[in-house]
């Protein structure tokens, strides 16, 4: 097991290194100002964000102005959407009446491209964080909601009958039976919506924001700071990777029974 995961890590390092080398080669051969080489981008990123004092964990003032608002919006938006999605989804999944009423609304809602709603959120809230959070919430709630509906609706009938026979109370049935059996699907939805939240964060910051990574990307673009633009892009990619990796760690903790049960089956 340990040997295998070491091998995986090794293979990943090789793939990343090879991709970086290829990127370097192509951009050098092309010699286009719009496509700086990674060897230009990475030092610029270091200079912009990671050359700060030790007391600030090497983060520069620019980084401290840019990262926390973005990450804050992303996490608040994602957590709010997740909670709302899970609660609503479980309710809809277990209630025939609710699903009959709300299915069309859900289909309508998720067909609306969230960026289109940014101006509406502007009008509702004001320029600033509430608008960004509203955009993120609206953009990422759907995978969680739909998966929670599905998970709650497909609880094994025999599990529910067992619960009924042994006289479990309503809260017990929800907490001990429905939530755990819907959990694998909910978690799949959460993971999807987390990566979506990063995208929604950038989109929401591109317009009508005065801080954050998206805003930084926008201003760099407007000032033709091509290397800065690429720096933001790479930063977002790394951030996405880190978010997903941390999510997987948590997932392994709460859903260990599920993956191990499937391996045993």
């Amino acid at each position: 097991m340990a040997a295998r995961s070491l091998g995986v890590v090794g293979a990943r390092v090789v793939v990343v290194a090879a991709a970086a080398a290829l990127w370097e080669l192509v951009t050098r051969l092309a010699a286009q100002p719009y496509f700086p080489a990674p060897s230009t981008i990475v030092p610029r990123m270091y200079e912009l964000w990671f050359s700060g004092p030790v007391t600030h964990v090497f983060l520069t003032d620019d980084a401290l102005d840019t990262f926390p608002p973005s990450l804050g919006r992303l996490l608040v938006g994602w957590v709010a959407a997740s909670l709302a999605g899970i609660v609503l989804g479980l309710a809809i999944g277990r209630s025939r009446v609710l699903s009959d009423f709300l299915d069309p609304v859900i289909d309508f809602g998720r067909a609306v491209p969230p960026p289109m709603l940014v101006p509406i959120f502007f009008a509702l809230f004001r320029i600033g964080t509430p608008t960004q959070i509203a955009t993120i919430v609206f953009g990422v709630i759907w995978p969680v909601l739909i998966n929670a509906v599905d998970g709650a609706a497909t609880v094994d009938r025999q599990h529910l009958e067992t619960a009924k026979v042994f006289g479990l109370s309503r809260p017990q049935v929800i907490g001990r039976i429905i939530v755990p059996s819907a959990m694998p699907k909910i978690v799949a939805g959460l993971r999807l919506s987390l990566s979506l939240a990063l995208i929604m964060m950038v989109i929401s910051e591109l317009v009508g924001s005065t801080s954050g990574i998206g805003y930084r990307l926008m201003t760099a673009q407007q000032n033709f700071l091509i290397t800065d633009v690429w720096g933001c892009i790479v930063l977002l990619g790394v951030l996405g990777y880190l978010l997903n990796s941390s999510f997987l760690l948590v997932e392994n903790r709460i859903l260990g029974w599920h993956s191990r049960a499937r391996q045993n089956a």
């Binding site: 094994d156 025999q158 599990h159 009958e161 026979v165 042994f166 755990p180 959990m183 049960a261």
Partner: peptide, 16 residues
């Protein structure tokens, strides 16, 4: 009253 079902794999809760 208690019941023992035929299909134990669907009657026991795998997360417990």
């Amino acid at each position: 009253l208690a019941v023992v079902f035929q299909d134990y794999s669907r009657s026991l809760f795998p997360w417990m």
